[in-house]
Amino acid sequence: MAADELRSLYQEIILEHNKNPRNFRTMEDSDVSVEGYNPLCGDHYTVYLKLEGDVVKDVSFKGSGCAISKASASVMSTMVKGRTKQEAEALFERFHDLVTGKPGQSASLDDLGSLAAFAGVSEFPARVKCASLAWHTLHGALENKQEAITTE
């Protein structure tokens, strides 16, 4: 039981993204960059965006934190590149429902791609903030927030 739950949290896809995070770099010529941190555990990232009108042309992140937070930031960066702000926000909403275990999610996991790997997080309430940190930070960046984003 415990081993299964653990497996469902630390899926291969998550471990792999943690080991080889995508778009893990500072972006010198970003249009907007926002810092996000989780004061309780010290997860700390900066999300960089390059925007063209309403479209996320490029996205990257840099910082440090646990495997869940880093993998989530990595997957997020691959998912929102090329999407409009509205599409990115809609993905965030679905991701948030997924990790907080909102009912009715399992039926529509297919089109979530790698994001579906984070479904197991909902069994670990203490880790929801880790999984959603990068997304909250992205949200702040899309809204052009000047101040740092925290999960508290």
Partner: peptide, 21 residues
């Protein structure tokens, strides 16, 4: 390996430790 990940895995073994600052 981040302490938070260690704490979660130890917790699955019934082991309570503190992780963080």
């Amino acid at each position: 390996i981040h302490p938070h990940d260690i704490g979660t895995i130890l917790d699955q073994e019934g082991i309570a430790v503190r992780t963080g600052h």
